[in-house]
Design a protein around this nucleic acid. Sequence first.
DNA 1: ACAAAAATAGAGCGATCGTTCGTTTTTAAT
DNA 2: ATTAAAAACGAACGATCGCTCTATTTTTGT
Lengths: 239, 239
Amino acid sequence: MSVIAPQEEHQHIFNSFKGYEQSFEYKGDRLYSMIFERNKERIKVSKEKFAVKNLQKIFNATFLISPKIGFEAMSLRDLSAETGLSMGGLYSSISSKEAIAVIVKDVVAVICGEIVELSRKQEDPVEALQTLVRGYLYSSTLMQPWFNFLYFETKSLPHLEQVASKQLELDQAHALADVLRRLNPTALVDLDFVAAMALSLIQERYVKAWKYPQYTTTIDKYADDCLALIYKSIDYKAS
Amino acid sequence: MSVIAPQEEHQHIFNSFKGYEQSFEYKGDRLYSMIFERNKERIKVSKEKFAVKNLQKIFNATFLISPKIGFEAMSLRDLSAETGLSMGGLYSSISSKEAIAVIVKDVVAVICGEIVELSRKQEDPVEALQTLVRGYLYSSTLMQPWFNFLYFETKSLPHLEQVASKQLELDQAHALADVLRRLNPTALVDLDFVAAMALSLIQERYVKAWKYPQYTTTIDKYADDCLALIYKSIDYKAS
DNA sequence: ACAAAAATAGAGCGATCGTTCGTTTTTAAT
DNA sequence: ATTAAAAACGAACGATCGCTCTATTTTTGT
């Protein structure tokens, strides 16, 4: 299970949003099939066909209501009205309200984990940074409601998942700082500070999507600006 | 009503956290007196002495519970237990649960408004940038629970206050971009992007306070790093 | 076309929510 | 010490919450 198809060349994918989007694993039904596979034992519906259809409705409705009033304030009756499913229908595809939040965390964790893993495999630090920055930016653009939800609704998670969610962020910060150290080992600036800056700059995009009217079409320029700023701040001159 | 005492010299205040803290207007009872004044007609208790004492308890308890489980999930019975006040006691000092969130937004708006206003008055763009960056950073450090609450619980506000809250952010971004334009009118980089970067970097601090174990003692270095990064990113050389 | 199985519907459950209000306690001026 | 006003209390209210469970409908395989 990998974000990019194995036959694709690495550099093609991380050069533009379009390229990344095409090779992205979790589009359409694929995503919900994965969710079904990972949560089979907690879902009453046994046929994937029905589960996928309902899960799609449930998450679409969640991402419509929750950003407006918050996950806690969203009732399952709101969700029922928006999805067109009855209360019983909802509970045939999810085990509890909390489970919705846990699944979102799970999906985001899988995607982020793969990006960090893929970056660590890159020998060239320039490629490794590209993988981290573009991978995170492009993924969070394609999955904006998911990343945004996890960012703002972490408190709705069980304690264990909350800790895991924070660890996700720390892992990314460490991965970033490591790459920066490889790019310029003698840098005079605080690389942990630069890593924190880069991370919050990436998150800014999906956290405040309302600020960016042309959300998906201007993401390549945003990625370019991010990388340029990172290079500049650690005094790295392109070769 | 101003953040800084009039007799103080401007540069002393915006040079270090300690200096800013001493001249900060909203410490201790002062803050709650202001809240009482601004909400008199909605508060049943008529004597300031009692109102201030209760408001202090209420907001302290809110900032203890809410960051852990979220404002929506915090019940007034939780609040009653934490403050030691009864249900009736709570409602003698606040008009509703929602009013708590509205007051937080109000306080943050006052502080942020003053910083932007003070910055716009500065003729020297270097001073104007210092005012914005250090003012916002220092204020949000002193009032971390307030800023953090507004950031994460905007959804709990009435619609009108939500819009105002977003406008607050846009005002700051514009003020920052304006100052950057004055500092380097011929800059090749996208100054709106740099402004967004600076803002999210400032917010990073109070949004993810858990990342910074020495929260208040390392704020001066953080402010220095921020300003250095901003100058570097717009190619501004100190004179 | 028809059982058997699977999925969905929706009324109902106990718990808890924000809020109110009649009562009791505390405060402050005489 | 007295007393009227102010503040605090806490049981009670209607509404709504997440969730369950049985009846009903839809799907599936023959």
